[in-house]
Amino acid sequence: MTRIEEFVKEQAEKHGRERSSLMPILQAVVQSERFLSEEAMVAIATELDLSTADVFGTASFYTFLDTVPRGKNIIRVCKTITCHMKGKDAIIATLEDMLKVKLGETTSDGKFSLLQANCLGWCHKGPVMLVNDEIYPEVTPEKAVEIIREYLKKTK
């Protein structure tokens, strides 16, 4: 049994093997591994007696359930209309420049992924940026650089 298979099994023990257990298990794997690998999805399908296509179908519906490898920190800049009008493009451009990646990519050292997100519900304090589970309202390009620098320090 591989490490992932064991992890999935533990999660199945915890959350059950019903179809409704799929979501918490997917979330747990993403929490731990930052994305759902092919191996992880096969393990989940096997454990829950579902088809792999079903598992992938569910995962691909949710933006936060990634099926491609992501960096240790995931930056998501809100792309919806209010944040757009308040200048999210400038933030993205600055971060692209700082991290030397394009939107959707992960830095070569694996420390950051730069993504967009749909409305995060902070329209009154846009533009907003989400790093992992932490929300940063009213960011400016300068503030964004500062925030990411802090994460850079913390990330080995």
Partner: peptide, 28 residues
């Protein structure tokens, strides 16, 4: 009871696809 095909992705990207969008010959 095979479910080689499933609904994947969402919104205007929603499609009928296979596990990880693999070719039909490579899936179950």
């Amino acid at each position: 009871a095979v479910s080689a095909l499933a609904v994947t992705h969402k919104g205007n990207k929603m499609r009928i696809s296979t596990f990880l969008d693999k070719p039909m010959n490579d899936v179950i």
